[in-house]
């Protein structure tokens, strides 16, 4: 799981607006197909919000790993 190569990391810890999911949506728009984007979020809600949107939008949820005080959530651009 942690061997997945991350193409871009967004450090959205401690940011509330636009927030980690909006940052992910923004980044996926310009990312190449199949690239993996990892978001760092200190908002526990991100670990549930992000997978819900990823499924709706047809991308691929890769992992969510809890670190000390934040989550690393990875998504692969699938369309």
């Amino acid at each position: 799981m942690s061997q997945v190569a991350v193409d871009k990391t967004i450090d959205a810890r401690g940011t509330y607006c636009p927030g980690p999911l909006m940052e992910l949506i923004k980044t996926l728009k310009t990312a190449p197909l199949q690239s993996v984007i990892e978001v760092w979020s200190s908002d526990s809600g991100s670990s549930t919000d992000i997978p819900v949107w990823v499924k709706k939008a047809g991308h691929e949820f890769v992992y969510s790993i809890e670190e000390k005080g934040y989550w690393r959530i990875a998504v692969r651009k699938a369309r």
Binding site: Y16, C17, P18, G19, L21, M22, I25, G45, D49, V52, W53
Partner: peptide, 10 residues
């Protein structure tokens, strides 16, 4: 709205 509530700020 792009995410799962009415605004980014809860």
């Amino acid at each position: 709205y792009p995410i799962g509530r009415l605004h980014s700020l809860v």
